[in-house]
Design a binder for these strands. Structure first.
Lengths: 154, 154
DNA sequence: TCTTGACTTCGAGCATGCTCTAAATCCTAG
DNA sequence: CTAGGATTTAGAGCATGCTCGAAGTCAAGA
């Protein structure tokens, strides 16, 4: 007991690394997309290769890819992630730029969130109206063009 | 005073309707996109035409287009808006379907919002870390691959 | 009337982000 | 050793949502 598995470097990652299929499973992106991310310069780590040329993913590779997917999930375009990746691989000296990039993205995301929330209110309102009118049984009048300057129908 | 402008039907909409350029300005979508929306079946109202074939937008047209832009702004795909538009133009009898569509979309939007918020936390964290390290002057160690099972670098 | 400039339709083109195919190679179980 | 599945590359293809171009029509002022 209390034995240290020397063949593993992390939660189940063997020392020789993971196949692309395993990496895909663990990161939640397809193998196709993993290769694509690498091709377009998103991957800042140097993914290892077997003698035969197959990719071998290690902990840092997976970590970085997860960062990418989170950035993507907040809507950061590939091109911007690449810029960030370029800054990161350029190494020390551009930390302010990285920070600027992240802060500017955060501002955009927050703005988008706010906008979506605002527009969601319309949907909430329409749902309320439909529910109310369905319950009241007079759903017929919904969006049947009304005379003129009157209030818009729902 | 207190004169009623009989040539206008709403906040500045003349009785003969607005040109596509004006409609574009007021709805915030380009004239190209207005035509596109019409082409793909998003527009439930029948936009009027002049004798010469030019579109004339009236209040309800603009209202509906604004509804479309709000649905788009929450990420509803064109195809779904079209389905909604079809339900609306089909008239009475499908209110439950419209409600279902809206509720299902709302659920998706809420889920997306939650996910974005979650992923935004990573960005917040990275920003904090960069700020802290920049302030501390040891920014050099950011994302320089660390030995091994240790904590991921930022 | 003539000249602009706005508008029309139809269809092509474009940006984004994957997603898939083909043909070759690798690797592992039997 | 061999069969068969996984992986490789380069490049094509696809879905979405616009966006633009061409060629022709319309309309309003000089």
């Amino acid at each position: 007991m209390l034995e240290v598995k020397t063949t593993e470097s992390a939660p189940g990652i063997p020392a020789e690394g993971l196949s692309i299929a395993e990496a895909a499973r663990r990161t939640g992106v397809s193998a196709h997309t993993l290769r694509y991310y690498e091709r377009v310069g998103l991957v800042v780590t140097t993914v290892g290769r077997t003698a035969g040329g197959r990719r071998r993913y290690h902990r840092l590779d997976l970590e970085w890819i997860k960062v990418c997917t989170k950035l993507r999930a907040t809507g950061m375009p590939i091109r911007t992630i690449r810029r960030y990746a370029d800054l990161v691989s350029a190494g020390r000296g551009n930390e302010q730029e990285r920070l600027d990039l992240l802060e500017s993205h955060r501002a955009e995301v927050r703005a988008r969130l706010a906008e979506v929330r605002r527009n969601l209110e319309l949907i909430d309102h329409k749902i309320d109206v439909y529910r109310g009118r369905l319950a009241a049984g007079d759903a017929d009048r919904l969006w049947a063009p009304t005379p003129d300057p009157g209030p818009a129908p729902e």
